[in-house]
Design a binder for these strands. Structure first.
Length: 330
DNA sequence: GATCCGTGGAT
DNA sequence: TATCCAAGGAT
């Protein structure tokens, strides 16, 4: 594995190349790991570059305004990560003297840092032996060991096998090697087994079931929801609000909306002749949404939100779609 | 253990 | 077009 990684490691902006004498920056390892939670490398790169440019150290990030961080995270999704990112940066500065804790157990106490991320930071940033298990490792281990127990029940078996394979030497490189293997060779569909350094040891391949692993419980279909969204423009100002800090799109900039449900009730923020700007479709993690976009250029006295200039890039994707529907670019 | 929580690319 | 899926965590 290590030998394979030495030559086949992906070149990533947050990564210290294998064999390098450079010391990884725990802040950057942590930032990248949080961004990479359930998110593709391709999507993360631009956000990682932006965050490290604007906030080069944990002190800079801890001192940032909440709204600035939420705006910078807009479009990346899972916005609780951004809220916890700030909480974590402030906890590191306030409770840990500006230095990230070095042990898996201490890392685990930080907001937004769970079992995977704590192990990854301990191994990659601090060269500590930690058993790193993410989706890639789950796939590689279930195939390597021909583990047919469905997830999540298979997690203890997976962790046990990953533990056996984790070395004392260069545990961070080992973890990244397995993840790179999962991302480039041991892929969910059509794995390139002929190129795999573990092909001779792989029980899943031997049994001819590698591609069918890991087994997972059937997913529930997403229900349909509908709603109204209200885009009011007055000169250079738009009527926007900050969503409640918990729940869907929590803490993000938004346009006023109705409830999102089976039979939504119109809920205009003020009386006006609202223009029907068409429908916008968007799919969230657990439901499909169709929003009817209502627009006006009349300034009224809204019952919520405030009039301000707006950078559409600071909006979650569903509201960016609504913006483009109401005010298409020439 | 089950549910909630985004997004965009691949198939 | 519909579904799957990605370096998961909080509750």
């Amino acid at each position: 594995m290590q030998d394979w990684y030495t030559h086949q490691a992906r070149d990533l902006p947050w990564r210290v190349p294998p064999g390098s004498n450079a010391t990884p920056d725990p802040y950057r390892i942590w930032l990248s790991e949080v961004m990479l939670q359930q998110t593709t490398v391709a999507a993360v790169k631009a956000y990682y570059a932006k965050f490290t440019e604007i906030w080069p150290t944990v002190h800079d990030l801890a001192a940032a305004e909440d709204a600035a961080v939420m705006a910078a995270w807009a479009g990346l999704g899972y916005y609780a990560r951004a809220r916890n990112l700030l909480k974590c940066a402030r906890a590191v500065v306030t409770d840990h003297d500006g230095t990230f804790p070095r042990t898996e157990a201490d890392l685990l106490t930080l907001p937004g840092v769970g079992p995977y991320t704590a192990a990854a930071i301990a191994a990659i940033a601090f060269q500590q032996r930690a058993v790193v298990v993410d989706g890639n490792v789950e796939r590689v281990m279930t195939r390597l060991g021909a583990i047919t127990t469905p997830l999540p029940a298979a997690k203890p078996e997976i962790h046990a096998l990953a533990d056996i394979l984790t070395p004392e030497d260069r545990p961070g490189d080992h973890a990244q090697a397995v993840m790179d293997l999962g991302a480039t060779i041991c892929t969910p569909k059509s794995p390139a087994c002929v190129l795999c350094p573990l092909r001779d040891a792989c029980a899943g391949r031997k049994a001819g079931i590698a591609e069918t692993l890991p087994r997972k419980a059937a997913k529930v279909p997403k229900p349909e929801r509908r709603g109204y969204v209200y885009l009011a423009k007055n000169g250079a100002d738009y009527l926007v609000e900050t969503r409640p800090s918990k729940g869907l799109l929590g803490g993000m900039l938004a346009f006023p909306t109705s409830d999102w449900s089976d039979r939504p009730l119109p809920a205009a923020p003020f009386d006006a002749r609202w223009r029907d700007a068409g429908d916008v479709r968007h799919t969230f993690t657990h439901f499909h949404l169709t929003l009817k976009v209502m627009a006006t250029s009349k300034r009224g006295n809204p019952d919520r939100g405030e009039w301000t200039t707006l950078d559409p890039a600071a909006l979650p994707t569903v509201f960016a779609k609504a913006f483009r529907a109401a005010f298409p670019e020439p």
